[in-house]
């Protein structure tokens, strides 16, 4: 059992939690994820590690209440316990040879992109962050991202906060204005990552996306998280979650994410519903 040390509602849909998990905290790096099970009858769902403190032994997660499991998790409070919490899983994000980086977070993807942005910024890289949301009420991590970036650009679909428009429009503008990025890191809805990758391909900028598909064990056992990268089948849980955005077959990923869409109570995927 894993104790919830802190809980904060970041907005109506998105929740922040700090979990007591010393073994995970001791080893985790930005880009890795955990798998949790809320209770005995629950599903196993993957969530990316948002932050951690090795000394205090906690790991934080940010999730959106989109399906049965995340709603259930959202009902828990400080001092409550989560049944299972395992990790860190996946390969940590590479941050080598990145000097001029644009980090793009779409909705909840900001929570996943944030630790990488922070790590790069603290290493001395030029880090521009473009954060996109549907509207003002869904904006998360604005202050944290501002502090940990060279420039922070907030975009909303309806213009209720920051600029009105898509993250890809802002990215194009920055590139055209001579941002000269060596790397773009995009984390968010699959459709967003797809269009960011299509754009950066035109400019030949290395692009890393973070895939978080349906999975059970997170150790390579089920193959449920498989995706096609450069024509080959890869498992997001052990080969990823980061992949070269120019090589991912996003359309088949989008299809696989719809697998359990009909089972309304079983929306277990992190990204679903935030497009």
């Amino acid at each position: 059992m894993y104790k919830i040390l802190e809980k904060k509602d970041l907005n109506n849909e998105v929740v922040f939690m700090k979990i007591d998990a010393p073994a995970v905290a001791k080893k985790c790096e930005p880009g890795q994820f955990i798998i949790l099970r809320v209770n005995e009858t629950g599903e196993r769902i993957p969530l990316t590690i948002e932050d951690y403190d090795r000394k205090e032994g906690w790991v934080s997660i940010i999730f959106q209440k989109v399906g049965k499991t995340t709603h259930l998790l959202g009902t828990l409070n400080k001092e409550d316990y989560i049944q299972d919490f395992v990790g860190p899983l996946g390969i940590a994000s590479h941050t080598d040879n990145m000097e001029r980086v644009c980090v793009i977070g779409g909705g909840l993807g900001c929570a996943i992109a944030f630790p990488q942005a922070k790590k790069l910024f603290r290493k001395g890289a030029h880090v521009d962050i473009i954060a996109g949301f549907r509207n003002e009420s869904l904006v998360i991590l604005e202050e944290e991202m501002k502090i940990n970036s060279t420039n922070y650009y907030l975009m909303t679909d309806d213009g209720s906060a920051g600029e009105k428009g898509l993250v890809t429009a802002k990215l194009k503008e920055l590139i055209e204005n001579g941002a000269n990025y060596d790397t773009v890191i995009a984390v968010g809805p699959v459709i967003m990552m797809k269009f960011v990758s299509l754009l950066t391909k035109e400019y030949g900028i290395r692009t890393i996306v973070s895939m978080n598909p349906i999975m059970i064990d997170g150790t390579g056992m089920c193959g449920g998280c498989r995706l096609t990268v450069d024509g080959q089948t890869k498992f997001a849980c052990v080969d990823g979650p980061d992949f070269d955005g120019h090589k991912v077959d996003f359309d088949s990923v989008l299809q696989r994410l719809s697998m359990y869409k009909e089972e309304e109570n079983h929306k277990c995927n992190l990204f679903r519903g935030i497009e």
Binding site: I216, M221, C222, G223, G224, R226, L227, S258
Partner: peptide
């Protein structure tokens, strides 16, 4: 093989 409705036996049986 990556179509929806294709499982590894491991995934199917684990579920």
């Amino acid at each position: 093989e990556n179509l929806n409705g294709v499982y590894s036996a491991n995934e199917f049986l684990t579920r």
